[in-house]
């Protein structure tokens, strides 16, 4: 990765949102194919569209570089195993 570049900046350049919806539907359908009834298919697709609308808002928001990257992980700090 080039140094000093695009750290925390907006990402995902593809604007083919329709194609992305189709791909996501395939993913959801792959996981839950036996559980989604025919009359629920369009509703699930609507929900996916909503999720992607939110995702696009998030992707197009530029993070302020003055804030640290997310890192909430801390190594285990309990009593050491003997």
């Amino acid at each position: 990765m080039a140094t000093g570049e695009v750290k925390g900046k907006a990402t995902m350049k593809s604007n083919d949102h329709e194609r992305e919806k189709e791909i996501m539907w395939d993913l959801v359908n792959l996981h839950f194919t036996n559980m989604i009834s025919d009359d629920q298919v369009e509703k699930v697709k609507e929900s996916i569209a909503g999720i992607l609308t939110d995702a696009n808002e998030i992707r197009s928001t530029t993070l302020d570089d003055s804030f640290p990257l997310l890192n909430s992980y801390q190594p285990f700090k309990g009593d050491a195993n003997e």
Partner: peptide
């Protein structure tokens, strides 16, 4: 609510 849980598989980890 019967189909509500399924679509959220479409939330990407990076998002």
């Amino acid at each position: 609510d019967k189909y509500g849980p399924y679509a959220r598989t479409a939330v990407l980890a990076k998002d």
